[in-house]
Amino acid sequence: MLRFVLQRLAMAIPTLLIVAVTVFVLMRLVPGDPASLMLGDLASAGQVEALRKQMGLDQPIPVQFAMWFGNVLSGDFGRSINTGQDVLPLIFDRFSVSATIVLLAVGIAALIGVPIGMIAAWRQKGALDLGIITGATLLLSIPSFWLGLMLLLFFGLQLGWLPVVGYVSFGQDFWAALLYIAMPVATLVLVETGVITRMARASTIEVMQLEYITHARAKGLSEPAVLWRHAFKNAFAPTWTIIGLILGNLLGSIAVIETVFTIPGLGRLLVDSIYARDYPVVQGCLLFIAGIYIVVNLIVDMLYPLFDPRVTI
């Protein structure tokens, strides 16, 4: 058990390192000198030179990378050029907002999508299956940001049931938070339910074709017993992996939903910082989100044996 965990952790290290190199190189490709960007146009050449020295920009690139990565590992992501704030606390602050929305949405979508997908697979090629698969394909063809705008138009502006923009955290006021978060979460739930339903259906169908299902039926087990004990249980494992991927992927594209509903999340921070050319923040966000994605996949992998009895660790 411990061995597997350590091995899996060791495998994540080169990935993390290359992700860090990629982010570092990307930010170095940005036209312009970071020091003069930080000081603005009015700084003298001497000031820029002094800051370059202080930031280590006069060192060779590999040394610069090592210094930067060392800082990152010790939790120092640098400071925002525009506000002077430390980047990491800023990221954590915004991340809690995005994580709340994404976790809620994927959790609800999984609770709806997995059973529906399995039912579709059980009734494969029947009317119910065709209805479900058509609905799921329709849902996943709608861009989340447009669906969000349509919900906003209908429930927010036409009916006036829900607040249109903004965010209240659950810590501040639970019921208000629920109202504010309802539409962004519902939007993501609708889109991701389509994805999860199709995935759950496909993996259940795959399992149902295997010989041991035929065998279970042949030995006279009742249909519910075959489905519950043999088919659904084994079909959930691949779906579980997809749910993990969706979780991470949503963090990478949450900016669009945060833009629709004007929510101060991590995605919005990243996009705003790109506009403002606030590169330490951009760099921090890229690294943080990619890091979270790697960690989420790590956790998903480690929990995998819970769902797939064939895999033991």
Binding site: P14, T15, L17, I18, T22, L26, S253, L286, I289, A290
Partner: peptide
């Protein structure tokens, strides 16, 4: 493949957002 997998470790739009920043 190690390099490729690392690039795949950027979720969704993230890598594209980073490149657009440049």
């Amino acid at each position: 493949m190690v390099a490729n997998d690392a690039l795949l470790a950027f979720p969704g739009l993230l890598l594209a957002l980073g490149i657009m920043a440049v």
